[in-house]
Design a protein around this nucleic acid. Structure first.
Lengths: 236, 236
DNA sequence: GTTCCGCGCCAACCCATGTTAGCTTGGCGG
DNA sequence: CCGCCAAGCTAACATGGGTTGGCGCGGAAC
């Protein structure tokens, strides 16, 4: 199980050997397996560990008291979740596994120390934060101003690039293990409408989605429909 | 013109005298005035300065090629905008003045140095980032899953707390210089519907909005309607 | 002082998306 | 091998919020 975070990072900057080794060590400390639909971090968890996603998909979500749920971010293999310590009594959101998950649990002290010892690692963490922020802004803009079909198309373009950055795309095909109800919560719609919209995308010859795998049939078309501009993707 | 960022910060942690002085110096370097509706940072600006908002309101927004606009964040007095350097050719969004604005322009090198010299300042910057991220998540969740009236109510609750943290609230009344078209772009709606919804909130006796000032008539009622949970506000 | 334009405000109409309800399929536990 | 349940899929109907268009006001430019 190779370290996808490293692979993503080194698409941008070559790390010093010592930093690379330190990051590798970190990721090998404490491997945890989480079943699909389990929480990695609960709404009421206090200060907690950071996590590196090694395999599987997770999401950050917020559950409202009346049952509504909003998924505010998707976490893919190679994503580093909360590199900086959060000193809060109560988290503002939870992190849940969408599929079976393999993660490295990272002690905050170990991260701090690695960042202090290797400026390159500190830079990585910072970049990961800035990337998460830019991504979050794009999601806010999208839910606010994109139509249903544009949102879905945009998400697929985004996933395509993010997964390609960690080598999980082959032949314009990649895993898409997110169920329609989950997509609905991520895009601010209902599962019924997600289904309608998927049908439209398929009928337009833009995508093919079967058995948890997505194939993009017409990438330029999909990007045009989504008004996709990759400027916000830091690692891709 | 006192430094509102300092005031906000020191509600949480007492800074060492040297750090406080350094932050004060930073803010006094290069004061800039910007007219309402002008961009502080454009969509196509490359790496740029950081800004400390001293007076007035600004917003981060994204303009789509077809004219649609999404406001993804409001920047209030005391907010620190982009403390960490962004090494990108093209920004993913712009920052614009909603009202006449007074800002301190901060050179990235000066910030880096202050952060290196004073761990307390580094901690402040990091906290500002984490706060921005949490805020952005809440906005994403809101646009995705809250109804029109809930969104508006929620925004007012948020502004109430954020402005209170810098001492700009008196008698449950605070400045609200955002026009209805701007509110629409921030909440993912149209100005017509914002108008309808404002009327509803007024009719329900929850708020009063006159002459760019908002008075909250029934805070508990407003919070209940908005499903407001302040867990995501780091400074307030 | 006049002109103009952006904003607040409102009503009528309409459509994109939500709601409800049901059927089908496939994977999993027993 | 059976039963169960979550997810995919669809149709019929309902509605929140978008669209269009129009009025009046007040502040800024001249």
């Amino acid at each position: 199980m190779d370290n996808l975070f490293l692979r993503k990072v080194e698409r941008q900057v070559r790390l010093p050997e010592a930093a690379r080794a330190a990051l590798g060590d970190l990721a090998r400390q404490q491997i945890r397996h989480v079943a699909a639909r389990q929480d990695l971090v609960g709404h009421d968890t206090g200060p907690h560990h950071a996590h590196l996603i090694l395999d599987g998909w997770a999401c950050r979500y917020r559950q409202f008291p009346d049952g509504r749920r909003a998924i505010v971010a998707l976490l893919l293999p190679g994503d580093l979740c909360d590199p900086y310590r959060v000193h809060r009594i109560r988290a503002d959101h939870a992190v849940g596994a969408l599929t079976a998950l393999t993660v490295a649990r990272l002690a905050p002290e170990a991260l701090d120390e690695a960042a202090r010892a290797h400026p390159a690692i500190e830079a990585c963490f910072r970049r990961e934060m800035l990337a998460a922020l830019a991504l979050q802004r794009e999601w806010t803009a999208g839910v606010g101003r994109r139509s249903a079909i544009e949102r879905l198309a945009h998400l697929f373009c985004e996933l395509h690039l993010r997964l390609a950055a960690v080598g999980l795309v082959a032949d314009a095909t990649f895993p898409m293990p997110v169920t329609q109800p989950d997509l609905a919560d991520a895009l601010g719609q209902t599962s019924v409408h997600i289904n309608r919209t998927l049908r439209e995308l398929r009928a337009a010859g833009l995508i093919e989605l079967r058995g948890r795998r997505l194939t993009i049939r017409d990438l330029p078309g999909l990007k045009a429909l989504a008004l996709f501009d990759p400027a916000y993707l830091y690692w891709a």
